[in-house]
Structures are given as C-alpha cells and as structure tokens.
Design a protein around this nucleic acid. Structure first.
Lengths: 115, 115
DNA sequence: CGCCTATATGTAGAAGAATAAGGTATGAAG
DNA sequence: CTTCATACCTTATTCTTCTACATATAGGCG
C-alpha cells in the first residue's frame, strides 16, 4: 500500500520527530508511527523500514533506551524512553531545525538583491 | 578549512536552494554558493563536492540548462538558467517544503494528547 | 618572475539514511 | 479458519551529502 500524500522525509528529520514523540512518555515503535501519522493529519507516513532502523540507531547512540513490556492490548512490545543524553540532543536538534527553517525561509523569500 | 557552523542540509534541500537562487537570473556555480552563504549570513556553507554534482543532477533532469560564458572578471564559467520545467518544480518543491516545516513544527510543538 | 590567494570547475570514495520489499508472530473479528 | 491489525525485524538498493583531491586562471605582492 502506497501512502496517498507523496511526501518524503528529508534525511535526518525522522530522528528528530521520533525523539520528540518519545519525549512525551514511554511508547513503542508501532505507536510512534501512528502518532506521527495522526499528528501530521496523514501527511507523514513513516515506513517500518525507516522506523525500526532509526530506533536502533537512536538506542545505539544512547538517546533512547528500551525494554519489553505488555501493551494495553496484551501484546509484547518494546517501549522506548528518552535518556538524559537524548533529551539534550533533542533540544539541540530542535534548535538546529528551527535555525535551518529560518535560513531556508529567508532564502526562499529573498529578492535578487538581498545581502 | 572547516566551516564553523557544523550544519548539515537535509537531503533535497540543496536542490531547492539552488533552484531558487538560479530563479533570480543566470548565475554560475561558484556564485550560487557565495550567494547562499551571504543570504544565510555564513550559516550555510555549500561544499563544492555537493554543489557541482547537484548542478549536474538538476541539468540532467532538465530543471536547469547552462552554457559557458565569461564572468565580469574575465573567466570562463558555466551560467545556469531555470527551465520552465525547473520553474514548475521549484514551485511545487517550495510548497512541499512549506508544508513539511508546517507539519514538523506542529509535531515539535505538540502536547502529548494532541490529535 | 615566482608565490599565494581567490575564483571557477570538476571527480572519487565513503558515509548515512530512506525506500521497497520482504519475513515472523499473535490477538481479535468474521 | 481465514483475514486483518498489531508489533517486531532485515536485506538490498538508491540517493544525497561530505571529505578530499585535482585542475586551471587572474590578480596582487615581493
């Protein structure tokens, strides 16, 4: 099944979104993808082949840690939590993102003669 | 020499910036990089190893075309112009970028219970 | 003249991440 | 008992970016 809103995430953005979602409290991978889809009003569809490698990456880098627990529906799932390292990283990456969008916005609106 | 503002561009963003800069009128590669650096107040340093492949890519995709001319300082340089295809692409990519930043912004500001 | 810097173009190799496409397993619903 | 949604995972491919290197010319300076 293809996603309706042909819309690719630029490389690097996914980690930021995941960290932010996890920052709200312990949550498992599948639910992270659902949450991102919801919050973007179906505009962003996180593929599983992007999601799980990203989670492993973030865990390896000590931004997240995880353990197996039962979901409310009685299934095994891996619940992720933000580490303090992860929290710091989230904050700095958020700042970078905001700075980047500011700069890109500047250029996209810029007139020819702009300094 | 390293650039001071360690700051990687998300994939796809460079093409957008290049197209936008070229949209202002014929310009050669080296000047594009300078322009982006200026307009970002030295925050964005486009590496040559990113710039030229990007230009070739955009030319191959018919978003740009180019020919050799003399610069004001009397040097051979490849001046790029936006094609009509490129103009259309720039517009749709700009819209995508704005939509993306909107959505990411939504998620980054979102409270835990957000729909 | 020789040297350095800025201009101007390019390539090669490696790294990194997203995608496409597959696989495993369970609970609930029909 | 079959199908669907949940929930995890991997592999191969593709694309873009970065680092680093390579080439060449114009202008300034000693």
């Amino acid at each position: 099944m293809k996603h309706d809103s042909g819309f690719d995430l630029p490389q690097g953005t996914l980690d930021l979104l995941i960290l932010k979602v996890v920052a709200h409290g312990p949550i498992h991978g599948y639910a992270i993808a659902q949450r991102i889809r919801q919050m973007s009003r179906n505009a962003l569809e996180v593929q599983q082949g992007s999601l799980y490698p990203a989670l492993h990456r973030l865990e390896y880098k000590k931004y997240l840690n995880a353990d197996w627990k039962l979901t409310e529906t009685g299934r095994e799932a891996r619940f992720y939590r933000l580490t303090s390292r992860g929290k710091a990283h989230l904050e700095s990456e958020t700042a970078s993102w905001e700075r980047l969008t500011e700069i890109v916005g500047l250029i996209l609106q810029g007139s020819p003669g702009e300094a």
